[in-house]
Nucleic acid binder design. Structure first.
Lengths: 170, 170
DNA sequence: ATTGGAATGTCAACAACGCTGACTTAAAGT
DNA sequence: ACTTTAAGTCAGCGTTGTTGACATTCCAAT
């Protein structure tokens, strides 16, 4: 069955890259690469009583300062209880500031403090270093393909979130 | 600093793809894409009292039938206690068979039962469907770039594991 | 043959981080 | 006034990772 779909030719283009074996390779590559992707921040966070959830919150608050809790909830795709637990510790520890909204006083707008910014920089420097090294090894064309595949793998809703974040930064 | 490294030109090739903003985009793409990557199997597993750890174990036992516990440990990168908990439930539920090694009776060789194979197929069909759709949308060149970047992101040890798995399947 | 080490399994405890459900407070909209 | 929305809180649970301690079994070397 796998070879049946793979041996088709569409407009003269080989579809060998769609075999089950090729797909399996991609799946395993995602698994191993994600491990590397999170390894450096994880190392920094371990022992700080923080984890990946804190890293993600810090990352997106840094990218969109003043974002509301609800907005962050949508981006991260977790429950408010789960996010709240993380935010509470970050506020208690003085890494995140939660300001009551001016227009809508129900909303809390989230900002990183100086200490929060410092940790964000430490974490993202480590993560970017690995990405930069990978990008440099393979060149711009491969990177373009990399992003295309990742975007195509996302759920449509996440695709929109992803594009919105990009637009907000120009 | 970001622009300083980005505005360098090496052999006439633009390095604009190495800006911090480009790297940040890649980081967010990995985050959102991994969510999509695991979404379909997660949906199947929820309610079965199984999780991602069970999926991963099943995947790699399927790919390398007869693999030892220690080998699986290295591939998955977790502690033996963590893996053992997962394997125990899979053996109890009749999805995995654990055979004592003939040459070295300390080793346990792991195999999927028929039921295990059925679940593996269900999970990997769902995951491959998403990969196939993404691959098809972007074409073979983008897929090649995708794999190159992922491989470059892995820790060296994981790179070796990844290549070994590929070689064992031709 | 005994000893040392390796592979495996098991028990207990703990932490991170998802989840659900129920409930409160406050403010906005109608 | 009434409903809805945003946020926070509490309690409990499940999965999956961690350490530490310990038992068993077997291979290999002394």
């Amino acid at each position: 069955m796998a070879d049946a779909s793979a041996s088709q030719v569409l407009g003269g283009e080989s579809l060998l890259y769609l075999t089950d074996e090729q797909l399996r390779q991609g799946i395993e590559a995602m698994f191993f690469a994600y491990r590397g992707f999170t390894a450096d921040p994880d190392r920094i966070l371990q022992g700080l009583s923080y984890g990946r959830a804190h890293h993600r919150a810090i990352h997106f608050i840094h990218c969109a300062p003043g974002t509301t809790v609800n907005n962050l909830l949508n981006i991260l795709g977790v429950t408010k209880q789960s996010l709240n637990r993380v935010l509470r510790t970050l506020v208690e520890d003085g890494l995140v500031e939660s300001r009551i909204g001016r227009a809508d006083k129900r909303e809390r707008h989230l900002y990183l403090t100086e200490a929060g910014d410092a940790l964000e920089k430490q974490l993202s420097d480590a993560q970017r270093a690995r990405m930069r090294s990978a990008y440099r090894q393979v060149g711009p064309e491969a990177v373009a393909g990399f992003k295309q595949v990742l975007e195509a793998m996302m759920d449509p809703e996440m695709q929109r979130q992803y594009q919105r974040l990009r637009e907000n930064r120009g």
